[in-house]
Design a protein around this nucleic acid. Structure first.
Lengths: 347, 347
DNA sequence: CTTGATCGTCGAACCGGTTCGACGCTGAAG
DNA sequence: CTTCAGCGTCGAACCGGTTCGACGATCAAG
């Protein structure tokens, strides 16, 4: 493999001149620059990443700490990851994917050894053990997901509170008075997945304000448990006219459950989900939903991270906590409830 | 951040002695070793990855080149990735995840710059443009997936030919005489996804030998297209008694299609899939299937890669092409076809 | 009491880049 | 004809590790 010394020799200049010709950080005569570039080309010169990192204290690599929980729905995760890797590459960075069980130790390892210029954390828990380490690290960090304590990091997340309110408002305005909210499984909450209760509590609060009855329950993350649960819920609350689904597995299971029960959406039941458009497409889900925009969140986190990495001024800016506003994508799966319809005899 | 120089000073020894005390590559007195270790501990010393890479020509990082095609089913991909990252970490390596559109250029970048000690390639095409670059690279490489030309790399894949034969044999032995095979979409084939025709052609050949009629068709990768296609197929070949599914999306869509048609499995139709146990669990697929073992394949590729990275002897060994034997996991979704049943009047 | 091997430690060189200070040359100004 | 500024280039130092050869001390053998 050719080194910059080889390039310099080939071009008949010193190593430093070759370096400046390639980086453009000092004026170099047109003639010399041409010779150096030609030599680099001829020798297929590529700078050694380790050497450059040592000299510049920059690796051009970002760390991405994620966990693949088997009890969480995998496809959603992929989109976050892709948002991160794609944006990183656009900005000239590679991505070190770290999925260690012990995330705190892994984080310490990659920051202390200076393998990365910055870190994106996913699967954020309310009280995340990685955060103290990230704050102590000399590299900047960003999270996708809202932790309990946001100090010292940039935070990006969907506004789950607003999402919960938007879902309730939407159905309330259509005239619904009794709703079911199916959340993630309880163990996601136990793991500190705050987004679950953020959406739920905001929805409950808003329902209370509107005088709407909202039955909030934990879901399951797998078939067939989640299908059974849906049946049970629909049996338990026969008068509920709307279903809010903050649970990918439940959303994916709903079409066949509805079919089994001969339940028509939206005629018999209005449905709103909370997932990504990509997810909706993959599973062909016919429901209106609040877009969770995983790729956008991953991308935003990386952009902010790179800004801080590359500019000392940006590094001194105050930390941000940025929420994406939930966008309700209509697929026509909601309608005024039966009881309020003109043609219903009960009226 | 503490350097080895700081540790040495703190322990009152030279830098080289500190290095030897930490690595154990030369005998060091118990007393000095103790002091060095204590100093390293006190200063929270972590070696600088770039400096170490420069000195040793080893980065302890493996490259993982993968593409997330939106027209392929995401969950399957996750498992390959996890197999790679988990095994790499067990062996002391981190993983650089590269998802560039231009895989060949990305591969050149990470190998020439010596960011990685070895590379795992996924989404292998029959004539993969990354392979010439991998062969020319100084780092060893492994693939998950069988390319047309296996020279110079280690190859790991499911034995798709045998999988195709096993599926046909299984139903043939049960007495089936007319089967449908639904493959991946045609564009996967156009992209060079050889596993599609490897399974199909072997299945066709075996069917011919057994005197079984096999209708082989391309599938779709998304709902609702794949659901419609399933309906069409079942309409088109009403006398077919068995369905072979080499297509994750089709397998996932089948339960609701069967339900819609009032079709019972296996009483009315025998079904065998080809996917992973993890996938079956996530979608609660009730079908017997050939296990595709993505995590095992990823793990095997990494193990072989690390062997070659760490041992000069292993690096000289001949390259391997290793197939995992398909294992048929029975879930009771196959049975002798109706026509051959004792209680059927037609007999 | 030398001689020689062994053990533990040190200094220096090296890996391959970047960057700072200096220096020679050219050309314009005095 | 000097003087000085500025441009282009070079040499050297540095980043933080690893590793080789050498050297002094210790101790057993001759």
């Amino acid at each position: 493999m050719a080194t910059i010394g080889d390039v310099a020799r080939e071009a008949g200049v010193s190593r430093s001149t070759a370096s400046y010709a390639l980086s453009g950080k000092r004026p170099i005569s047109e003639e010399v620059r041409r010779r150096v570039l030609a030599a680099a080309e001829a020798l297929a010169y590529t700078p050694n990443a380790g050497a450059r990192a040592l000299a510049t204290s920059r690796t051009k690599v970002l760390g991405l700490l994620a966990r693949f929980y088997t009890d969480e729905f995998a496809p959603a995760m992929m989109q976050y990851i892709q948002g991160v890797t794609d944006t990183a590459r656009d900005l000239g960075y590679d991505t070190l994917l770290v999925t260690d069980e012990d995330g705190a130790r892994a984080l310490r390892r990659i920051t202390d050894s200076r393998m990365v210029d910055g870190v994106v954390l996913m699967n954020i828990a309310q009280d995340d053990p990685r955060l103290p380490i990230l704050r102590a690290a000399s590299q900047p960090g960003a999270t996708v997901g809202l932790p309990g304590d946001c100090s010292g990091i940039d935070v990006f997340d969907l506004d789950f509170e607003e999402a919960g309110r938007a879902m309730v408002d939407h159905l309330h305005r259509l005239g619904h008075r009794e709703l079911i909210l199916i959340s993630q499984p309880e163990h996601v909450v136990e793991r500190g997945g705050a987004y679950v209760w953020r959406l739920r509590d905001a929805a409950l609060e808003r329902a209370r304000q509107c005088g709407v009855t909202l039955h909030a329950v934990y879901g399951e993350s797998r078939q067939p448990a989640v299908g059974r649960l849906l049946h049970t819920l629909l049996d338990t609350y026969p008068s509920a006219t709307g279903l809010l689904v903050n649970n990918e597995a439940a959303a994916a299971a709903l079409p066949s459950v509805a079919h089994e029960r001969g339940l028509r959406v939206p005629e018999d039941l209005s449905v709103i989900g909370r997932y990504s458009a990509e997810f909706a497409a993959a599973f062909s889900l016919p429901y209106s939903f609040v877009e969770s925009a995983p790729d956008r969140l991953g991308s935003m986190a990386v952009r902010q991270l790179v800004r801080r990495v590359e500019s000392a001024a940006a590094r001194r800016e105050p930390f941000v906590v940025r929420f994406i506003s939930p966008e309700l994508v209509s697929r026509g799966s909601t309608t005024p409830p039966r009881a309020t319809r003109p043609r219903t005899p009960a009226r």
